[in-house]
């Protein structure tokens, strides 16, 4: 279980506060106006931004001071999720061992993950030789082999068209359902939230609100969310 205890995450002159828990296996969409601190929140949990006050706990263990790679977190960024000079298999393999010294079992795991996301046969391709959707699939294969219990997505599919994005979200939902991982994904599209998230964290005016049930929140939005959605 992820627990944010009176957390203040600073990003330059800007800060986000959060004080809530996310249940194991929950699928949480993080939505809110742009500039309100969605990415700041996610990067704080991932360990890229310093936590100024409070603690971040995973299953009761304080991970506030852990470096990003040692947290129980697999993360995809808005872009640049693959190394362009490495093959798909190498990019995925980095999720198992950062020194890429894989044994036969681990290589088989990489191959299975690549097949699971629908890229079988493309293992030796480099990212430039893949379509945008295929690149996203490769990055998701790495998330799969990482096997981390908390998956953070900072709008990695924003550049894809609507149909492709929906396809990726369904793939993500399938993957976290299989692994039982907790999912937190930044989105500026309430449709994304309705599609795969059962809870929503609303980030507005420098505060991340506790998760609420998706349909309930979106059907009866509070004023700040109404402003954002344009339904006022």
């Amino acid at each position: 279980m992820l627990k944010l205890e009176g957390v203040v995450i600073r990003n330059g002159a800007f800060a986000v506060t959060a004080d809530f828990e996310v249940a194991d296996g929950a699928k949480v969409a993080v939505i809110g106006p742009s500039g309100a601190g969605k990415t700041t929140l996610i990067e704080g949990i991932a360990g890229f931004l310093a936590v100024e006050r409070g603690r971040i706990l995973w299953d009761g263990r304080d991970i506030t001071a852990e470096p990003p790679g040692r947290r129980p977190v697999a993360m995809l960024f808005q872009d640049g999720n693959l190394f362009p000079h490495l093959t798909v298999a190498q990019n995925v393999g980095l999720g198992i061992r950062p020194d890429l010294k894989l044994d036969a079992d681990q290589r088989a795991r990489v191959a299975r993950a690549i097949a699971r996301v629908g890229l079988a046969g493309l293992e030796v391709r480099k990212p430039a030789e893949l379509s945008g959707g295929q690149q996203s699939r490769a990055a998701l294969a790495r998330v799969l082999v990482q096997g981390r219990p908390l998956v953070l997505l900072d709008e990695p599919f924003a550049a894809l068209g609507p149909a492709l994005k929906a396809e990726m979200l369904d793939l993500v939902a399938g993957l976290v359902a299989e692994t039982g991982a907790t999912l937190m994904m930044v989105s500026h599209d309430p449709g994304d939230a309705r599609r795969i998230a059962d809870q929503v964290v609303l980030v507005a005016e420098g505060r991340a609100h506790p998760p609420q049930e998706t349909t309930a929140l979106l059907d009866a939005p509070p004023p700040v969310l109404q402003d954002y959605l344009g339904t006022a």
Binding site: F48, P67, G69, A74, F77, G80, R142
Partner: peptide, 8 residues
């Protein structure tokens, strides 16, 4: 950042 997230 990508490297750090992979403990690279």
């Amino acid at each position: 950042r990508l490297g750090a997230s992979l403990d690279l």
